[in-house]
Amino acid sequence: MKALLSSKPVLWFLFLFNLVVAVAAPFAVHGTQGVMTAVGMGVVSLGAGSALLRGRPARRVTG
């Protein structure tokens, strides 16, 4: 599972999807729930983005 989550396509998906949700959440859900959703998704997006910037070579899944 770790090798799958560290692959570049998955990291790009996590980065972009969570970034879009973080930006749209306060407009779709009003109040504290929207803000907390945006913060949570933003943290996940930043984590995926930082993993992409580190330039770690993606591991190949074998077997």
Rank of each mutant, 00 (worst) to 15 (best):
M1I: 05
M1Y: 06
L4P: 09
L4G: 08
L5E: 09
L5Q: 05
S6N: 00
S6E: 04
S7Y: 00
S7E: 02
S7H: 02
K8S: 05
K8G: 00
K8R: 14
P9K: 00
P9V: 00
P9D: 01
V10F: 03
V10R: 01
V10S: 02
L11W: 01
L11R: 00
W12C: 08
L14D: 04
L14G: 01
L14W: 07
F15T: 13
F15P: 12
L16D: 05
F17Y: 06
N18M: 08
L19P: 08
L19D: 12
V21K: 02
V21P: 03
V21D: 09
A22Q: 00
A22W: 09
V23M: 09
V23E: 03
V23P: 05
A24D: 15
A24R: 14
A25W: 02
A25E: 01
A25R: 00
A25T: 01
F27N: 09
A28R: 07
A28M: 06
A28S: 09
V29R: 09
V29P: 06
H30G: 07
H30A: 12
H30Q: 04
G31T: 05
G31W: 00
G31L: 02
G31R: 02
G31S: 03
G31N: 03
T32I: 07
T32E: 11
T32Y: 01
Q33L: 14
Q33D: 13
Q33Y: 15
G34Y: 07
G34V: 05
G34A: 08
V35T: 10
M36Y: 15
T37L: 13
T37V: 14
A38V: 04
A38T: 03
V39I: 14
G40Y: 10
G40R: 08
G40H: 12
M41V: 11
G42T: 10
G42E: 10
V43G: 14
V43T: 15
V43P: 14
V44G: 14
S45P: 00
S45Q: 02
S45V: 03
S45F: 02
L46E: 03
L46P: 12
L46I: 07
L46W: 07
G47N: 13
G47P: 10
A48I: 11
G49H: 09
S50V: 08
S50E: 12
S50H: 12
S50A: 10
A51L: 11
L52G: 00
L52H: 04
L52K: 02
L52W: 00
L53N: 03
L53W: 15
R54M: 14
G55V: 08
R56T: 15
R56W: 11
R56I: 11
P57R: 07
A58L: 04
A58T: 10
A58M: 10
R59C: 06
R59W: 07
R59I: 11
R60K: 09
R60N: 09
R60E: 01
R60F: 12
V61F: 05
V61L: 11
T62A: 05
T62K: 00
G63W: 03
G63R: 05
